[in-house]
Simulated assay, not measured.
Amino acid sequence: MTDEITLRQRLRLETAADHARVDGLFSQFDLTGPVGLGEFLSVSYLAYDCLGEVLQPYDGLVPPAPPLEDILADLSSLGRPRPDWLQRPSLSGIHPLGVIYVIAGSHLGGTILHQRWRASDDERVKGAGRFLTFLSDRACWSEFLRFLPSVNIGQMERNHVVESAKACFSLYETACRYVMKETAHGANRP
Rank of each mutant, 00 (worst) to 15 (best):
G33A: 12
P34E: 12
G36E: 00
L37R: 00
L37C: 03
E39F: 07
E39C: 11
F40E: 00
F40G: 01
L41V: 01
L41W: 00
S42D: 06
V43Q: 01
S44C: 07
A47D: 04
A47S: 12
Y48F: 14
L51E: 01
V54N: 03
L55T: 03
P57M: 10
P57A: 09
D59S: 13
D59V: 13
G60L: 08
V62C: 10
V62Q: 10
P64G: 11
P64Y: 04
A65G: 09
P67T: 05
P67R: 07
L68S: 08
E69H: 14
E69Q: 14
D70V: 10
I71A: 03
A73M: 09
D74Q: 06
S76A: 15
L78H: 04
G79S: 11
P81Y: 05
P81V: 10
R82D: 11
P83R: 06
P83T: 10
D84W: 13
L86A: 15
P89W: 10
S92M: 13
G93T: 09
G93C: 08
I94D: 00
H95G: 08
P96F: 03
P96S: 08
V99M: 02
I100L: 06
Y101K: 01
Y101W: 10
V102A: 01
V102T: 02
I103Q: 01
I103M: 02
I103C: 00
A104T: 03
A104H: 02
G105F: 05
G105K: 03
H107W: 01
G110R: 06
I112Q: 08
L113D: 06
H114Y: 13
R116G: 05
R116T: 07
W117V: 02
A119D: 15
A119L: 15
A119T: 15
A119E: 15
A119C: 14
A119M: 15
D121Y: 13
D122H: 08
R124S: 14
R124K: 15
K126F: 14
A128D: 01
G129W: 05
R130W: 06
F131Q: 00
T133F: 13
L135F: 07
S136A: 15
